[in-house]
């Protein structure tokens, strides 16, 4: 059953030493398939830690190429990678850390027509995206497909995350619908302290590993928020809303929606 090589036992020894993980837990990690949507600020630490942890299969979705302005926080991409597709740059680093990992790359945007097809191959989805249309799409697709996912959002000095399992509160339960596109600060206006991405992404990675090993309590029905200016962390209880448009008793959403893309996407398309 546990067919780890000597080298793997050594590589994962600090997991195996944990009473709550052990060889059994490490085997669960090795059998896990995780989809990371977005190889950016959050996707970078998530992918690096999941690869190092020995997650068996990691899928990465991202249509973009590495830009110089990404390097301030997207630590999976190096200076030499500017201009390289993010999925290729990420795959290279994942395999350099851990050649045991199988990496699937999707150099495309996640949208209504491909989301369910891509998600269905994986056991857990990590949201590392930078806009509300895709965050709601991931939520709706995961609810429809019965997949657990980790939501992540960062802005300036703040971060927020929660974990959804089927039956627990979803993003729509407490955010209902995307804010009007005009109200959302554009990427260049908003900005983010680079290390915030690492703080939040590593929390998401820890949730993934907790999920597969069954350790502790996940961030289900709780929204974790933090403000790095004060280093205050808070978990706000949230709950499944019976009137929720996607996971409620009488869902009104029966298909995936492509909401209007925020303005910062335009710049990316123009470039190339």
């Amino acid at each position: 059953m546990f067919d780890f090589t000597e080298e793997q036992i050594q590589r994962y020894s600090r997991h195996i030493l944990l009473q709550d993980v052990g060889v059994e837990g490490q085997e669960k990690i090795q059998n896990a398939k995780v989809l990371v949507v977005g190889a950016g600020g959050l996707g970078a630490p998530v992918s690096l830690y999941l690869a190092a942890a020995g997650i068996g299969r990691i899928g990465i979705v991202d249509a973009d190429v590495v830009d110089l302005s990404n390097l301030q926080r997207q630590v999976i991409h190096f200076t030499k990678d500017v201009g390289v597709p993010k999925v290729e740059s990420a795959k290279e680093k994942i395999l350099a850390i851990n050649p045991d990992v199988k990496v699937d790359t999707y150099r495309e945007f996640l949208y209504s027509a491909n989301a369910l097809d891509i998600i269905k191959e994986y056991d857990f989805v990590v949201d590392g995206t930078d806009n509300f249309p895709v965050k709601f799409l991931i939520n709706d697709a995961c609810v429809m497909a019965g997949k657990p996912f980790s939501h992540g959002g960062i802005l300036r000095f703040n971060g927020q995350t929660f974990t959804h399992l089927p039956g627990t509160a979803c993003y729509r339960c407490f955010f209902k619908e995307p804010p009007p596109a005009g109200a959302v600060p554009t990427c260049s206006q908003a900005g983010v302290l680079g290390a915030i991405a690492g703080m939040l992404g590593t929390i998401q990675a820890a949730e993934v590993l907790k999920y597969f090993t069954g350790v502790g309590q996940l961030l289900t029905n709780r929204l974790l928020i933090f403000d790095a200016k004060t280093m205050q962390f808070r978990t706000i209880p949230v709950k499944h809303r019976p009137t929720c448009e996607i996971c409620g008793e009488h869902p009104t959403i029966d298909h995936l929606i492509d909401y209007e893309q925020p303005t910062c996407e335009l710049k990316k398309h123009k470039k190339s």
Binding site: G38, G40, G41, L42, G43, N70, Q74, D127, G128, T129, D130, N131, F132, K135, G152, G153, I154, L155, N158, G159, Q160, F174, F175, P179, V184, C187, A190, V192, A197, L223, I225, I236, V238, P262
Partner: peptide, 9 residues
């Protein structure tokens, strides 16, 4: 107050 946070990339 739960703030919408859309960043991640």
């Amino acid at each position: 107050f739960l703030y919408f946070m859309g960043g991640g990339m």
